[in-house]
């Protein structure tokens, strides 16, 4: 499970960085989205990977700290997803405004001279 997750994070982050460095605004926004997926998965993984374990241990019930899923990273991921979603939506609007005002989808607002 660890190998699959870390490969997934690596591929997402790698593709994200590659797209982020491309000259088209659409590629940049997709790159940011991929990067934020990678970061969300990464945050999630810092609590340790366990399946089927409870986040809250009830008194009297069977269960030890060893098989408990840390709820904090999950809360952090939720916050990060919400914030990331909102800022990406905002960036999308700015991207469309830039396209409309400059007439090109190059990130610098003008095509490079060939």
């Amino acid at each position: 499970m660890e190998l699959v997750l870390s490969l997934g994070i690596g591929v997402l982050a790698g593709s994200g960085v590659w797209l982020l460095l491309r000259p088209r605004t659409f590629q940049v926004i997709i790159g940011l989205a991929l990067l934020s997926y990678a970061v969300n998965l990464f945050i999630f993984s810092t609590g340790g990977l366990r399946s089927g374990s409870p986040a809250i241990l009830e008194p009297g019930e069977v269960g030890t700290i060893a098989e408990y899923a840390d709820p904090l990273p999950q809360a952090l991921v939720l916050t990060a997803i919400v914030i990331g979603f909102a800022t990406t939506a905002l960036l999308l609007v700015v991207l469309l405004a830039a396209r409309g005002l400059t007439g090109t989808d190059h990130v610098d607002g003008r095509e490079r001279e060939r």
């Binding site: 982020l20 605004t25 940049v28 940011l32 990067l35 934020s36 970061v39 990464f42 945050i43 810092t46 990273p73 952090l76 990060a80 914030i83 800022t87 990406t88 905002l90 960036l91 700015v94 991207l95 405004a97 830039a98 005002l101 400059t102 990130v107 610098d108 607002g109």
Partner: peptide, 24 residues
């Protein structure tokens, strides 16, 4: 809009770095 686009992208990337750092 042109300057704002750069500003937003750079700050979003910085925020992602912030998240990576905080989770490590």
């Amino acid at each position: 809009v042109r300057a704002g686009l750069h500003y937003i992208v750079i700050n979003l990337v910085a925020s992602l770095l912030f998240l990576i750092g905080a989770s490590v």
